[in-house]
């Protein structure tokens, strides 16, 4: 009897989530028809991009609980791979994107593997150091990367070049990217893999004692995370057609990916999206509105939100809503 109920409620759980995602997808697909102002679309593109990157971070930082503050390394690798392959060899950025993602995944695996022995903050510091080394190397390797000057891609629109007139194509690509990350996250959540990640996040030693190969699963997680982040970096290259170490290897971005996921709700599939939807427009609009007069206010607010969320809603906004719902249901049930 209990089994049956469990199966049914599990199906229901998935059902409502699936419907939600579908609704989200429809809204996303339809929005450009209502708001076709390029500026608005630019903001939406950034929202989707950050949501995707935060979602990618979430896989290792949220589900597996290994906080990395060096994810910009993967972003930058994806960005530079795409740019350089196109500029030097004329390889289509679509392919470059995949290759960039793969490179990022490989590097993720290589550098994380030895670091997984470290726990908590030490792992975090190691990821920070790696990202910094990558940034410094990208400046030093001037013949290859152009150094601080960066890489410029000439505007030459065409599908093969992954360059378009107008914002709409970029919008849809960003939307798809975000949904890709979302679907991967949901797949992880519902799979045994995700189960193992949760286990090792909650209690690393106990999981090992139970025979779970924590190293293997962490490796998978960070490789997937790195790949997806690399895709985001590649997209960024095509959006701006100009990359430099300051933009794509900066620790600010690492922090931002993590913070967006945390504010929205780390360890949930929807959290990063929620986080990005709130934080990204806030950042852009505040800067636009206040700009010269109150330089930096947008970040003060961002920082304050982070502190508040982390202190009072450690499971992020998604967690907050779940708690709220649970409390209301509990009260109504006990009546």
């Amino acid at each position: 009897m209990t089994n049956l109920t469990n199966t049914i409620s599990k199906k229901n759980k998935h059902f409502s989530m699936n419907v939600f995602i579908l609704v989200l997808a429809i809204i996303g697909a339809v929005l450009p028809l209502i708001w076709d102002n390029p500026y608005t679309m630019q903001i939406l593109i950034l929202i989707f991009l950050y949501a995707a990157a935060a979602g990618a971070w979430n896989i290792i930082g949220g589900y597996a609980g290994q906080v990395s503050l060096g994810h910009v390394a993967f972003f930058g690798l994806g960005a530079y791979t795409t740019a350089l392959l196109y500029n030097f060899f004329g390889i289509s950025p679509w392919i470059g994107m995949i290759l960039g993602g793969i490179l990022a995944a490989v590097v993720a695996g290589l550098i994380s593997y030895p670091c997984f022995r470290l726990r908590g903050p030490f792992f975090t510091l190691a990821t920070l150091a790696f990202a910094e080394v990558l940034r410094l190397l990208s400046i030093w390797a001037r013949p290859l990367t152009g150094g601080q000057v960066g890489v410029t891609i000439l505007f030459n629109p065409g599908f093969k070049n992954f360059q378009f007139f107008g914002k709409t194509p970029y919008y849809y690509i960003a939307l798809i990217l975000m949904f890709l990350v979302l679907i991967v996250s949901i797949w992880i959540e519902r799979s045994k893999f995700g189960y193992y990640l949760t286990a090792l996040k909650e209690d690393h030693d106990a999981s090992e004692a139970l025979g779970i190969n924590t190293a293997k699963y962490k490796l998978y997680a960070i490789a997937i995370s790195g790949f997806l982040t690399g895709l985001c970096g590649a997209f960024y290259t095509q959006l701006l057609l100009f990359i430099e170490p300051l933009s794509v290897f900066t620790s600010h971005l690492s922090n931002q990916f993590a913070m967006i996921a945390v504010v929205g709700g780390a360890g949930t599939a929807v959290g990063p999206i929620l986080g990005s939807v709130i934080i990204t427009p806030l950042n852009e609009l505040l800067r636009g509105a206040l700009g010269g007069d109150f330089q930096g206010l947008n970040f003060v607010i961002f920082g304050a939100i982070l502190i508040l969320v982390v202190t009072f809603m450690p499971n992020g906004l998604v967690g907050f809503f779940k708690d709220m719902k649970a409390k209301i249901n509990h009260r109504s049930e006990s009546k």
């Binding site: 229901n12 759980k13 409502s16 989530m17 419907v19 939600f20 609704v23 989200l24 809204i27 929807v270 999206i273 929620l274 939807v277 709130i278 906004l317 998604v318 809503f321 779940k322 719902k325 249901n329």
Partner: peptide, 14 residues
């Protein structure tokens, strides 16, 4: 129950 959470989230998103 979960539906309502998602509904709320959708509202915020919108």
């Amino acid at each position: 129950m979960k539906k309502k959470i998602y509904f709320l989230i959708s509202v915020i998103l919108i």
